[in-house]
Simulated scan of single mutants.
Amino acid sequence: MLKTVFSVCSVLLMSLTACQSQLPSPLQIQAVEAMPPLAAEFETEVLETDTHGDETTRVYRWRFVRHADRVETHNLSDDSGEVWRRLAGGDIAYQKVFHGQRQTIDYQPGDLKALAAVPDWRAVATLLSPAELGGLQADGEESALGRVALRYRSGQGEIEELLWLNREQLPALIRRQERGHLLVTRLAALYPTGQAPWPELRDEDYGHTDYADLGDKEGDPFVKSILPTLKGGHHHEH
Rank of each mutant, 00 (worst) to 15 (best):
A93S: 15
H99T: 02
A114G: 12
A138R: 07
G100T: 09
G135Q: 06
R70A: 07
R66C: 10
P130D: 07
I92E: 01
R66N: 07
R122T: 15
V118Q: 14
R102T: 05
A88G: 03
L76H: 01
L76E: 08
D111T: 12
L115R: 15
L127S: 12
W121A: 09
Q101H: 10
E132C: 02
G140E: 12
E82V: 02
Y60T: 12
A68K: 15
R63E: 12
D78I: 10
Y94K: 06
V71W: 05
R122H: 11
R70E: 08
Q101Y: 06
T104M: 05
N75L: 08
D120N: 15
F98H: 03
A131D: 13
E132V: 06
I92V: 14
I92M: 03
S129F: 04
D120P: 03
R66L: 14
D106E: 10
V65D: 03
E82L: 03
G100S: 07
D139K: 13
P130G: 07
D79T: 01
I105T: 03
S129I: 00
A117Y: 09
G135E: 08
G81F: 02
Q95T: 02
Y94R: 04
L127P: 00
G135D: 10
H99F: 11
L115C: 12
H99S: 05
D69P: 00
D111E: 12
D139T: 06
A125H: 09
G100P: 00
R61N: 14
L127I: 01
A88T: 09
L76I: 02
G140S: 12
W84H: 07
V118W: 08
E82H: 07
D91P: 01
T104Y: 00
H99P: 00
A88N: 07
W84M: 04
D139C: 04
Q137P: 00
T104C: 04
A88H: 06
A116W: 09
G135T: 06
V83M: 05
Q101A: 15
K96D: 07
I105H: 04
E72Y: 03
D111M: 10
Y94G: 02
R70I: 07
D79S: 10
R85A: 01
K113G: 10
D111S: 09
Y60E: 14
D120M: 10
Y60W: 05
R61D: 14
R70V: 10
S129E: 11
W84I: 02
A131S: 13
Q101V: 03
W62T: 05
V83P: 00
D106P: 00
F64H: 12
D111Q: 09
A125M: 14
Q101L: 01
L87F: 02
I105V: 15
N75F: 04
A125Y: 06
S77H: 08
Q137Y: 05
A114I: 01
W62D: 08
R86M: 05
H74D: 03
R85V: 01
S129V: 02
R122S: 15
G100N: 04
P109G: 10
Q95A: 08
E132G: 02
Q137N: 08
E72M: 06
G110E: 14
L133P: 03
V83G: 00
Y60V: 13
R70Q: 07
G81P: 01
T73E: 06
P119Y: 15
W84E: 02
V118K: 12
V71Y: 05
A131N: 09
G100L: 04
G135C: 06
